[in-house]
Design a protein around this nucleic acid. Sequence first.
DNA 1: TGCTTGACGATCA
DNA 2: GTGATCGCCAAGC
Length: 109
Amino acid sequence: MKSKFDFNDVYEVVKLIPKGRITSYGAIAAYLGLKSGARMVGWAMNSVHEFKKVPAHRVLNRNGLLTGKMHFQTPTRMQELLEKEGLIIKNDQVQHFEKVFWDPSIELL
DNA sequence: TGCTTGACGATCA
DNA sequence: GTGATCGCCAAGC
């Protein structure tokens, strides 16, 4: 039972995200069984900065917006990586978001 | 010890 | 469809 929020769980899920795919904080939170843990996931990503072994650029908000791009090495780093994986970024937003969306609670089923 | 902030999400007006 | 508010939990000051 994950009564408490664990960073390791978030990292593991994020690292499982396939190339060219993205997911949302809420999806990870839901997969971990968190209610409104979206913020917790985002907070975990803030701490991931120390580990930086997680493709955090594949984790976006519910709108498919690159909200955390500013937390990367460079604000454009996130978009560069996503475009490099075949994704299309327009105005800091992922195009075909629902097509590239990767839900751990479904894909990892 | 208590208030504010925060890589968010959902709901209401 | 857009804007504003609440909730959620943890860390920082």
